[in-house]
Simulated assay, not measured.
Amino acid sequence: MRALLVVNPKATTTSGRTRDVLTHALRSELKLEVAVTGYRGHAGDLARAAAADGSMDLVVALGGDGTVNEVVNGLLAHGPSEKLPRLAVVPGGSTNVFARALGLPNDPVDATGVLLDALDSGRQREISLGKAMTDGLPDRWFTFTAGLGFDAGVVGRVEEQRRSGRRSTHALYVREALRHYVTEREHRKNGPVTLEIPGRAPQSGLVMSIVSNTSPWTFLGNRPVLPSPSASFETDLDVFGITRMTAFGTARTIRQILRPHTPSEQPGKQPGPTGKHVVSYHDVRHFTLVSQEPVPFQVDGDHLGDRSRVSFTGVRRALRVIV
Score class of each variant (00 low, 15 high):
G74F: 00
G74S: 12
L75T: 07
L75F: 01
L76S: 08
L76W: 10
L76R: 11
H78C: 12
G79H: 01
P80E: 09
P80V: 12
P80R: 08
S81T: 02
K83G: 13
L84W: 04
L84I: 09
P85G: 10
P85R: 01
P85H: 01
P85V: 02
P85C: 11
P85T: 12
R86C: 11
L87K: 06
A88S: 14
A88Q: 04
V89Y: 02
V89G: 01
V89A: 07
P91M: 10
P91W: 05
G92Y: 04
G92E: 07
G93L: 04
G93Q: 03
S94V: 01
S94R: 03
S94P: 05
S94H: 07
S94K: 11
T95C: 12
N96G: 11
N96D: 15
V97S: 08
V97E: 03
V97F: 02
F98N: 02
F98E: 06
A99G: 14
A99Q: 07
A99S: 13
A99W: 09
R100F: 00
R100T: 09
A101V: 09
L102G: 11
L102M: 13
L102Y: 03
G103T: 03
L104F: 02
L104I: 03
L104D: 11
P105N: 09
N106Y: 03
D107Q: 11
D107H: 11
P108F: 09
